[in-house]
């Protein structure tokens, strides 16, 4: 399940560097391992693997030194999927740079038809709006599924709340944090703050008592009411993920469709595994899962996913 395609090095070639020491360069890495050819002759971008866009400062310091040493122009770039890219690296140095990165425990990312590095927002660890531990989930997905072969690229992301900064609607498979608010009348003082705090008009205040009148159809499960209520009359009933499938950007963007609500943390890995199984069984080579779903039908997928999704129905 892990990145064996990077580790199973077979086609090693000796490259002589300035006529001095020779080193081995794995040309398989060029296709699978996050080395992207630049316009400039012999120069490549080396894309690092940074799940959730998070790095320890300690590692960042080490990466800086390596980037400074190998980038011919002394520049890095943040990829659109949160990973750091070292630009202008001579391909003859691949062996050295990979070895140095490995020494500090930094892996190189991947390209091509496989599970990509997950992206994630800050989530509940430090973001005031966060409902789910997006960083922990991204880490789990990276460890468990990164590099798993699929018919085409497979991008996942985690947003901590319905503001959806990690754009789960544009992912092959996206997870967005939600919370189910529950109101307990005894604790309510009728202050009307929750009606003000709800940006979806899902709460109106009773004109006489000031107490909330809740419209579940309008609720998007953001938890603003829970955080605003001064007396804890609004409480979290359960947390989970809204799950979306089949989105993508690119030349022909598609919006993902919602397939499950309130999927608990502990079922995320199962959901991804089962979805990859369905994709590998039904997707054509070079076909994104959204297109496969359109061709084969969403019902086939939902039926396949029933064991994972059914328990999370509202």
């Amino acid at each position: 399940m892990t990145d064996h395609f990077i580790e199973d090095k077979t086609t090693k070639v000796n490259v002589s560097v300035d006529g001095a020491a020779t080193q081995k360069v794995d040309f398989n890495d060029l296709k699978s391992g996050g080395f992207i050819k630049q316009r400039q002759k012999d120069l490549f971008t080396v894309r690092l693997r940074c799940p959730g866009g998070k790095l320890t400062t300690e590692k960042l310091l080490e990466i800086s030194k390596i980037a400074h040493k190998y980038s011919k122009k002394g520049v890095v770039h943040f990829s659109f999927r949160q990973s750091l890219e070292i630009l202008y690296v001579d391909y003859k140095e691949f062996g050295n740079i990979v070895a140095e990165l490995e020494k500090i425990g930094q892996k190189v990312a991947s390209c091509g038809p496989r599970v990509r590095v997950p992206t994630a927002c800050g989530g509940c660890e430090y973001n005031p709006n966060g409902l789910t531990d997006t960083q922990k989930m991204a880490d789990m997905v990276d460890k468990t599924f990164f590099g798993t072969p699929t018919p085409h690229k497979f991008k996942t992301s985690f947003s901590g709340c319905p503001i959806d900064c990690a754009r789960t609607k544009e992912m092959d498979f996206g997870f967005q944090g939600v919370v189910d608010p529950k109101w307990e009348e005894e604790a309510c003082t009728g202050c009307t703050i929750c009606a003000e705090a709800c940006k979806e008009d899902a709460i109106a205040s009773d004109p006489d008592t000031g107490k909330p009148i809740f419209d579940p159809v309008k609720c998007i499960f953001c938890g603003d009411c829970i955080r605003a209520c001064p007396t804890e009359a609004w409480k979290p009933k359960r947390y989970g993920h809204t799950v979306r499938i089949g989105g993508k950007h690119g030349r022909h963007p598609m919006e993902a469709v919602e397939v499950c609500n309130f999927l608990p943390d502990e079922k995320v890995a199962d959901a991804i595994k089962m979805t990859i199984d369905w994709y590998n069984a039904n997707g054509k080579r070079g076909e994104r899962i959204g297109n496969a779903l359109k061709r084969v039908g969403l019902e086939s997928y939902l039926k396949h996913m029933e064991p994972v999704f059914k328990s999370s129905k509202a």
Binding site: P128, T189, C191, T192, I193, E196, A197, K199, G210, D224, R227, A228, P230
Partner: peptide, 29 residues
């Protein structure tokens, strides 16, 4: 009302202070 009443009480709560009374007076709280 609007952004301030949507955000400030949440942040006050998160800092551990207690909101003991809320009164709405026309356009403000």
């Amino acid at each position: 009302s609007g952004d301030p009443i949507q955000n400030v009480p949440k942040s006050i709560k998160e800092e551990g202070h207690k909101i003991v009374e809320v009164k709405k007076e026309g356009d403000f709280f």
